[in-house]
Simulated scan of single mutants.
Amino acid sequence: MSGTVSRRIVAAWLREVGVDYVLRPTAREETLEDIRKELTECRRCPLCTGRSTVVFGVGNPRARLMFVGEGPGSEEDRRGEPFVGAAGKRLDRWIARIGLRREDVYIANIVKCRPPGNRAPFPDEAKVCLPYLLRQIRAIRPEIICTLGATALNFLLGVEGKITRERGKWRERDGIPVLPTYHPAFILRDAARETEVFEDFDALASRLRLPPAK
Rank of each mutant, 00 (worst) to 15 (best):
residue 6 S to W: 09
residue 7 R to F: 11
residue 10 V to C: 13
residue 11 A to M: 11
residue 12 A to K: 06
residue 14 L to A: 07
residue 16 E to D: 13
residue 16 E to Y: 05
residue 17 V to Y: 15
residue 18 G to F: 09
residue 23 L to M: 10
residue 24 R to M: 10
residue 28 R to D: 11
residue 29 E to W: 11
residue 32 L to C: 05
residue 32 L to T: 04
residue 34 D to C: 13
residue 38 E to K: 15
residue 38 E to N: 14
residue 40 T to E: 14
residue 43 R to E: 08
residue 44 R to Q: 12
residue 45 C to Y: 13
residue 49 T to Q: 12
residue 49 T to H: 13
residue 50 G to K: 10
residue 52 S to A: 11
residue 53 T to Y: 03
residue 56 F to E: 01
residue 57 G to R: 01
residue 59 G to K: 03
residue 65 L to A: 09
residue 65 L to N: 06
residue 65 L to Q: 08
residue 66 M to V: 06
residue 66 M to K: 03
residue 66 M to L: 07
residue 70 E to W: 04
residue 76 E to S: 01
residue 80 G to L: 05
residue 81 E to I: 05
residue 81 E to R: 00
residue 85 G to E: 00
residue 86 A to V: 05
residue 89 K to S: 09
residue 91 L to M: 01
residue 92 D to H: 02
residue 96 A to M: 05
residue 97 R to L: 00
residue 106 Y to P: 11
residue 108 A to D: 07
residue 108 A to Y: 06
residue 110 I to D: 15
residue 113 C to E: 13
residue 115 P to F: 01
residue 118 N to P: 03
residue 118 N to E: 06
residue 119 R to W: 09
residue 120 A to R: 08
residue 124 D to Y: 15
residue 130 L to F: 15
residue 131 P to I: 13
residue 135 R to A: 10
residue 138 R to N: 10
residue 140 I to M: 02
residue 142 P to G: 07
residue 142 P to D: 03
residue 144 I to D: 00
residue 152 A to F: 02
residue 158 G to E: 02
residue 160 E to R: 07
residue 167 R to D: 02
residue 167 R to I: 01
residue 171 R to Q: 04
residue 173 R to N: 06
residue 176 I to S: 04
residue 178 V to E: 03
residue 179 L to N: 04
residue 183 H to G: 00
residue 191 A to F: 15
residue 191 A to R: 03
residue 193 R to T: 12
residue 195 T to L: 14
residue 196 E to R: 14
residue 199 E to V: 08
residue 200 D to C: 00
residue 201 F to E: 07
residue 202 D to Q: 14
residue 207 R to A: 04
